[in-house]
Amino acid sequence: MVKRLTTDALLLAIALVMFVFEAQLPPIVPVPGVKLGLANIITVYAFFVLTPQDAFLILVCRIFLGSVFSGQLMTFFFSFAGGMLCFLSLLCIKPALTSDQIWVASVISAIFHNIGQIIMAIIIFSSPAMMAYLPVLIFSGTIAGLLTGLSAQVIINRLNHKKTNL
């Protein structure tokens, strides 16, 4: 119990540092919503090495605390919508993967994160025109998800000798 709490807290701290660090980087392209999603490495790691429950707790706490640190309410709404869809997609994709295909889960979850953000944007701005951002966000999300997914895969292979819950 204590071990689990400590591990989760440590992972949450790492995820938060990544989240805050990434927010300080200047935007690569002038498209709202395009980002690297470094904290996704932690979500994917926790999901497959620990349990989905741990990953969910870390995700929710990271989104809440990350929005508090960034000081913007909008960040919370968009991260929350993205995070929830991202987590649901991880749950759905899990049965179809082997322990060498964890990076695939990251790509899928990144795509659904962006879909969640677009849905939230359509609701908040009450403007269906925000749909126009979906292709470019899926494009950037797939590439970013590939990078973070491969990072997570390498970390899991090195640290855990492939002791995943798959």
């Binding site: 709202p32 909008m74 944007a121 025109a129 925000m130 126009a132 951002y133």
Partner: peptide, 30 residues
């Protein structure tokens, strides 16, 4: 705003994509 993405997007130039300023909840669209 923090990221200035709204400024970098430049002129409203295509039919579908609105100019967006996420932090201020502002969009410019056709």
């Amino acid at each position: 705003c923090r990221d200035h993405i709204c400024m970098q997007q430049g002129w409203l130039s295509d039919q579908a994509t609105p100019i967006v300023c996420m932090p201020h909840g502002l969009i410019i669209q056709l």
